[in-house]
């Protein structure tokens, strides 16, 4: 009996959906726009985070030793730096390797290659490339080096400081997120009102049937549930349409991620696929809560059961 009633509740919901078809279309459109704005924010977040992580990985300190510093001395400095808690990774480039890398980098510059060939000795010293645990550790590491006994071995320290750039990206990302959030809240508010109004119209359209249901003693849940089901249906269809729009959109932007954002190894479609349940499951839950809340208020106000 309960199963039969549940089936009937779904049937009544479907009937109401079709009877107010264009209103249903409008409601679904508004909810879809809300979900698209949410997903846009998700995409921006993902891209922003990835970009920032890539930039962070490129930050390092290069310590150039004087040419006369021996390998043993350079390795001593390396051992000293590796003992620091702030240091994550160390890459030692020997004098010979440094020279080879220099030659490779200037292979098309015949003047430099010719000049190098005329030298008897390797003019370059060894190099230590230091990667810290956190961005804030770099100034500390430099300060420790400056104050250490090994400072006399060091010709130069080069800090590839993308920090300012990262800060700018962070700020831009934050602003976009804020705008996105405002858009989402606005759309959610509009969606709540639209669902409320749609259910109100559905109640009005079905008022004769509702009156008869109350008259003949239909259970209250059976009178209310078709309207709730109808509002959930709007959310479900809207989510389906959103997914149908988002994936082609992701396919469109994927090539540009490699080209413009240097996100070479990042596939945003794979990211969405592997987090499908979390991303869209959360949205489904959110939209069901929104639709349920909105339609409950309409039912309480206009249905009076």
């Amino acid at each position: 009996m309960l199963f039969v009633s549940i089936i009937r509740a779904f049937m009544f919901a479907g009937q109401s959906f079709w009877r107010n078809f264009w209103l249903s279309v409008v409601t679904i459109t508004i909810i879809t726009l809300t979900l698209l704005s949410v997903n846009s924010l998700v995409i921006l977040n993902v891209i922003g985070d990835r970009s920032i992580n890539i930039l962070k990985d490129r930050i390092d300190v290069s310590v150039y030793f004087k040419p006369e510093v021996t390998e043993a001395q350079a390795r001593e400095v390396r051992t000293f730096l590796s003992s620091l808690a702030q240091v994550n990774q160390l890459e030692y480039i020997s004098q010979q390797d440094a020279l080879e890398q220099f030659k490779q980098a200037h292979i098309n510059d015949s003047d430099i290659i010719t000049s190098l060939a005329e030298l008897d000795e390797n003019p370059l010293g060894a190099t230590l490339r230091v990667t810290a645990n956190e961005l804030g550790d770099y100034p500390e590491i430099l300060s420790i080096l400056d104050g250490s006994q090994y400072n006399e071995f060091i010709l130069e320290k080069n800090f590839n400081n993308h920090q300012e750039f990262i800060a700018r990206i962070n700020k831009l990302s934050g602003n976009i997120q804020l705008l996105g959030l405002v858009a989402i809240i606005l759309f959610m508010f509009i969606a709540t009102l639209i669902v409320f109004n749609t259910i109100r119209v559905a109640i009005y359209t079905q008022r004769d049937a509702v009156r008869v249901m109350r008259l003949v003693g239909a259970p209250n849940w059976l009178i209310r549930s078709p309207f709730l089901i109808e509002s959930f249906l709007y959310g479900l269809i809207a989510l389906g349409i959103t997914i149908a729009i988002i994936y082609p959109l992701l396919r469109t932007i994927q090539p540009h991620l490699s080209t413009f954002l240097l996100l070479v190894d990042f596939n945003i479609i794979d990211h969405f696929n592997s987090n499908f349940l979390i991303i869209f499951g959360t949205q489904l839950l959110g939209i069901i809560l929104l639709a349920g809340f909105s339609s409950s208020i309409a039912l309480r106000r206009y249905l009076k059961v």
Binding site: M1, L2, S5, R8, A209, V216, A218, P219, I223
Partner: peptide, 11 residues
């Protein structure tokens, strides 16, 4: 029939 349907009576 509607009066019975809304009270969960079987078809």
């Amino acid at each position: 029939a509607f009066a019975l349907q809304v009270c969960g009576v079987a078809p």
